[in-house]
Design a protein around this nucleic acid. Sequence first.
DNA 1: AATTGAGTTCCAAATAACGGAACATCAATT
DNA 2: AATTGATGTTCCGTTATTTGGAACTCAATT
Lengths: 280, 280
Amino acid sequence: MVDQTDSTAAKPDRMEVSDTRPQRSRVDTGTLGKAIAVLDIVASADEPMRFTDILALSSQPRGTLHRQLSNLVEEGLLSLGRDHSYSVGIRLLKFAAKAWAGNQFRAIAEPHLRALHDLTGETVHLGVLRGSEVIYLDKVESRQAVRMYSQIGNASPVYCTGVGKAAMSALPDAELRDLVSTIRFKRFTDSTLTTQDALIAEIAEIRDSGNAYDREEHEPGIRCVAAPIYSSDRSFVGGVSVTGPAYRITAEALESWAGLVRDTAGSIMDDMGARLGPRT
Amino acid sequence: MVDQTDSTAAKPDRMEVSDTRPQRSRVDTGTLGKAIAVLDIVASADEPMRFTDILALSSQPRGTLHRQLSNLVEEGLLSLGRDHSYSVGIRLLKFAAKAWAGNQFRAIAEPHLRALHDLTGETVHLGVLRGSEVIYLDKVESRQAVRMYSQIGNASPVYCTGVGKAAMSALPDAELRDLVSTIRFKRFTDSTLTTQDALIAEIAEIRDSGNAYDREEHEPGIRCVAAPIYSSDRSFVGGVSVTGPAYRITAEALESWAGLVRDTAGSIMDDMGARLGPRT
DNA sequence: AATTGAGTTCCAAATAACGGAACATCAATT
DNA sequence: AATTGATGTTCCGTTATTTGGAACTCAATT
């Protein structure tokens, strides 16, 4: 736990409840943390990694890393290919299926996402902020030609997605600054914001208007409008968005949906409040 | 958006062999194993659990369990609700998305599943054996009215699903007996097999015919025909199936698809072999 | 105010992880 | 076939972490 002796710290209330905000002072999670860090290395790679590849990224001695990997494999969290390459194990699918099905936020939001999709005819996304990433919890789109997991569970950068920017706009200033300072900007398209200042300025606008836009900042030809969703104490922060291809959705059409998206976000928050009971 | 649809750029011998067989002599995985066991308790429950509920199932002292839970929460594998209830954390979604997208078996099988769906018009499932459960890796169905995660990642019993029984039929005798002896049979419908002998007998038939059937054994009104898929050394065992409602699919119609399902399984195995290269 | 139940913290003892180095395995090369 | 180098695996004394009983806090209830 962080020290609370700092007299100048204006901590609103205690923050130990399912916190999705960026961890400012990482608490030690011992052996488990180290193992999960290894898992994360493998999960963050684009293709299966060999022992030596992981070794280079893990800053652990050979023997130690080897045991950690063995344990992860034994537990089914990793799988070891015949060519000694490690990839993420299918046991995680089982856990994730539960995480998804049991997620209250997602369940509450679902009907609202459908409604928004019916009104716009375009793809609707629901995401939450986790650390400096957005994790997509759900999506609704007309033709399910695309693969199912294509978005759900995917982690995307906060600074160039509608949901990400919307979520950030709901953060208290201190946390927003902390988060922004940890971002390592990468240019995806010509429009990608690549500086802290530009991002902070845009978030100020989002706070005013209540809507975030992704103007082909992550993927060329893809536009989106989003609105933030948050719990009253901001311990939980996410967003909802409508996405469409630039050739079909003009900037004006996108703006015409802004109100709808805000309303959807509002309805979801209302339902959350109702389900979660009265709150400080 | 990160397009990770398929990173299989003609990479030979990269097939993962992830041992999915029932672990006969559980190797000790130390601290990690204990933590994951706790995670599994939470993931196996139907609703969020309180500290005391978990304590009752975990056979660990209070202090120890508390620290384990705290670590899991800190790592984002569990999430702690404001009412002190634990549920599976969304961080697992990120891992699972990778596990799914990067799964070679699934990628190889995908076009064949689509083809089978086109031929039958009914829902097609792909699953693998993991311990004494089947985990569904993919499904193809016409109308995506159902929720996405509805099957993918779901763990179902081996003894009353088509894919499960098909997978078992590919196991060597010794492993099959080991597995069967660990099953705790539960009656889901009137047709559910509930004894080891009945199951073993049915698997003998499956080995002869090459097809497994689920005759409303898991869910009333749901029938399915399946065929096994396995690596040459049986380190990997799974199955493919076609499922339909009993009112529409007669037992005869089901049998008429048996050959198609076997062919699909065969094509998938061929592709796996081609990717794996020559093999012992 | 006292009691109960639930969750959290503490710390000496017990246990598991660490990590350097030796060993094994395999592919390419001579 | 023998050598080399790269890669993966095992071993074991040392070190650091987990363990688990007990004491503590807090809130709700009697």
